[in-house]
């Protein structure tokens, strides 16, 4: 278990995709940035294959010069680059290894977010383990897995969405930083164990619709839950996001020693990124001041609106924050 607790330095990690977003997101309180990027000539060589988990045209930085502008504008605030597709076509790992080295050595990128084991191992072999963040797609869900990746030398592990707070506690080890999902964009399946591609459309949106012999009311509730995972398809009347949210769990993350909290949504509008970061910073600051889950929830509702979303835990990333007792993980019947 991790020995450092009551972490006051917990950071808000913001997505971005252009230099024009840097100043507003810094003003909102972002402590770190992450973005996606493909090397020049990628599409000519590898076609429509993505370098990371999001659409290159809808969510990524335009090119290396645009990234350089972002890094300059961000100043001392770290900028991480996601190269976290779950797999790559023939020849791509070599290209991305060289590209990753260039980003780290020449461009001032703080870290690379990686999922594919071949790419991860190649970058480790190139001497960059200390600047690698293990993507949530690598599904690190227990302390043995944390130790495995810690021994490989990665500096940060991004834990998957679908863990309870107690399970997150059980993943923590010394010597590695941990990042958790905080707000926006759920996933119906476990993202790291989903072998489909969003290039062909989002597979899970139609999941269950054609399932035989399932109760209709169950499928209706499943559809509702999928809708909440998809950010309820809209924003609140005050312009704040309505998707999955773990703000109230920040005090628990702080106590567990989590170092960074991810705001999801590289492809989102600047307005959505801005309001998401603003919510996250507000909640983090309440936690820093000693506030608890209830205080954060009420402040969130006051700022964002949509009280019913909170009161029914419809969109909670970590609904066990409202459980009492010492262990809210799954019951073991053995």
């Amino acid at each position: 278990m991790k020995s450092v607790h009551d972490n006051q330095g917990i950071k808000i990690l913001s997505p971005l995709r252009s230099v024009s977003e840097v100043a507003p997101l810094l003003a909102a309180g972002a402590d770190e940035f992450y973005c996606g990027l493909a090397p020049t000539g990628w599409e000519q060589r590898f076609g429509a294959t993505w370098t990371n988990r999001r659409h290159p045209h809808a969510a990524a930085v335009l090119n290396e010069q645009a990234l350089a502008d972002i890094i300059t504008a961000a100043g001392s605030v770290p900028v991480h680059v996601a190269l976290n597709a779950p797999h790559y076509p023939r020849g791509a790992v070599k290209v991305l290894t060289e590209f990753g080295c260039q980003l780290l050595q020449d461009m001032g990128v703080s870290a690379l977010i990686v999922a594919d084991m071949d790419l991860l191992l190649a970058l480790i072999e190139a001497g960059h383990a200390a600047k690698l963040h293990l993507s949530s797609l690598a599904t690190c869900t227990n302390i043995g897995s944390s130790r495995f990746f810690g021994d490989l030398g990665v500096s940060r592990i991004i834990l998957p969405r679908h863990l309870t707070l107690a399970e997150i506690d059980q993943c923590m080890i010394d010597g590695v930083d941990f990042e958790t999902f905080l707000i926006n964009d759920g996933c119906v399946f476990e993202e790291g164990l989903c072998a489909t591609t969003h290039q062909a459309g989002t597979f899970c949106l139609a999941d269950g619709d054609g399932l035989k012999d399932m109760p209709e009311d169950l499928l209706e509730r499943y559809a509702f839950w999928k809708w909440t995972q998809n950010n309820c398809g809209c924003s609140s009347s005050k312009g704040y996001p309505l998707g999955p949210c773990g703000l109230c769990a920040i005090p628990r993350f702080q106590a567990a020693g989590v170092m960074s909290l991810k705001v999801v949504g590289r492809e989102a509008s600047l307005e959505r990124k801005y309001t998401s970061v603003k919510l996250a910073v507000m909640a983090r600051d309440i936690a820093r001041a000693g506030g608890g889950a209830e205080e954060i929830r009420e402040a969130t509702i006051a700022l964002r609106g949509a009280a019913s979303l909170c009161h029914n835990s419809h969109a909670c990333y970590y609904p066990d924050v409202w459980k009492t007792g010492t262990d809210s993980a799954m019951v073991d019947h053995r």
Partner: peptide, 13 residues
């Protein structure tokens, strides 16, 4: 396998 996760329809049913 196509996709897997922890939110299980059979468990929910």
């Amino acid at each position: 396998f196509v996709s897997s996760g922890r939110n299980c329809l059979e468990k929910a049913a």
